[in-house]
Design a protein around this nucleic acid. Sequence first.
DNA 1: CAGCCGTGGTT
DNA 2: TAACCAAGGCT
Length: 336
Amino acid sequence: MTTPSGVRDPARLSGRATPPTLLHHRVTAWFSEEARELPWRDPACSPWGILVSEVMLQQTPVVRVLPVWSEWLERWPTPGELASEPAGAAVRHWGRLGYPRRALRLHAAASAIVLQHGGVVPSTREDLLALPGVGAYTAAAVAAFAYGRRETVVDTNIRRVHARLFAGSALPAPALTAAEMRRAEELLPEDDALSVRWNAAVMELGAVICTARAPACGSCPVQDACAWVAAGRPAPDHVPKGQAWAGTDRQVRGAMVAVLRAAESPLPRALLIRGPLDLGSGPPPGITSAGPDQLPGALGALHGLQAPAEQHERALAGLLSDGLAEETDGSIHLPS
DNA sequence: CAGCCGTGGTT
DNA sequence: TAACCAAGGCT
């Protein structure tokens, strides 16, 4: 089998200044043809729009982010506009994206951007990293995609592509290793613009072709250079540890936040711990037909879990501790 | 650093 | 259907 570039040659990988290779060309050319048209990839998209997208995309699929992102950018076109509202508004409009603490952190990031950066999303990895909810991946991604900087962007897609293409493994290690970072740095083209395109292209390749479950190797632009394919696509050597869900505090917290999002005014604490007792003329207990985004349905879902009151107490304490909820005069509400 | 933090579509 | 998985971050 012919190797289309010298990248698989260890001598190349050990070099500092990596020149563009045929591999770079193939992947970026594929990206030019096949990239999905996503709103945050529009050249007119602001750095703020890109930051919001990156945070929303943390552990959340693109298709679910799209409508919420559009609503956010319409409602809060700049960090200043989000920062001028209570944090609870961010949580409320987070919808069902999951991990609602991200909304809280994005709101805090907006405030920091206003107070410390004059309302302009910072452009360096270091300044971005100091923002709440912005870690190594998001900082590099925003610096690269919003400001055209040459950064080593490593997300789960890029890790998987590298693991297969170069290491011949089905999946990357459970946690990002120093060796992986080093390899990603060495693969990064020297040219700023090309490096940005390379980062985006490899990420897209992992998201669309080199997927975790059923990779479409037949459509891959670098299939003939892939060590994993060459090895006969061996199965993963480690079993990913699944995360429990049913019966966990997380499940109760999630249902509880859904109730707070759906509520237009503070709710009596007892309503979150016991059943939906007094909703005025409100719904009878156990009603779920109203849907998860309406108060009766959200309350029905929370109490339909049949979790012990102690677990409700623990979940609520966690929410209060995390700042996802506040208590005023015995009533619970989203943060102000 | 291992565990925790949501949600819903897919297999 | 239970399990897996999705542009991670924080403690």
